[in-house]
Amino acid sequence: MSTDPIDGPDVPAGAAGGATSGAVATRDHWRKKSFIANPVARWLVYGGVILYVVWTLGTLPIDWARVAEGVERAGRIFGGAFPPSFERSGLLIDGFLESLKIAILATFGGVLLSIPIAFMAARNVVPRAVFYVGRAIIIVARSFHPVIVAIIFVKAVGFGPLAGVLTLIVYSIGFVAKMLAERIEEIDFGQVEAMKAAGAPYLSTLIYAVVPQIMPRQVGLTIYQLDSNLRASAVVGIVGAGGIGSTLANAFGRYDYDFALAITMVIVGAILLSEAVSGQIRKRL
């Protein structure tokens, strides 16, 4: 009889194996085959995970006195936040409209720039060297969180919505160009060959044979990205890139917690609304 350890309920059911060949005549023993077949490897993995969790949690610099104080402070924050104050709704509306403008312009600019970058990053329509450049642009744009990009733009072009627009253009490229490039790689190449056979120049081939095939996806992506940009614009504002996020950061900085709660509520409402609208439109496309 084997001495297999107990398998936890979290072991996925992917462990399929052959018959229990060496079984005795009256078989009254059965154990689920473990996901990691080798017991040594399995215990190393389990042990490693436990060690990691214990070690990281153990070394967390939690200052319990500070936390106790913090909970008290949280009480003050929430106490100060209720009821939410819509007194300065003028400021709130301005901030929100600015976020909307940032999102619209960034979507427009981002989608426009995404098209050439997506073509560059599609293996099947450009030479290898160009492909690597295109992919590198997308990887860099995707890897940096918009807040990091925003900080750099704020330093370069100053506080305000311009930094926000530039940030979200980069953010849009990271997503739209990636998805679009994948779509281009999946296109029906027969049409491209037909155009080439008709003697069409390279650019015309791209526009006539490839663009119509990727358009439906592009429209869907644009609407999705507008929604994403509206969300993100609330965040990049916190580091000074304009929009309602800046309004929120200011309110927080001045301990106006009731105004901050009002802003947060507007942001949440706007995000839910834009998600619902964009979902509806994309469903109908």
Partner: peptide, 11 residues
């Protein structure tokens, strides 16, 4: 949860 079924059940 543990898949520790009684011997008579397995038999």
């Amino acid at each position: 949860l543990m898949r520790r079924y009684p011997k008579e059940d397995i038999r």
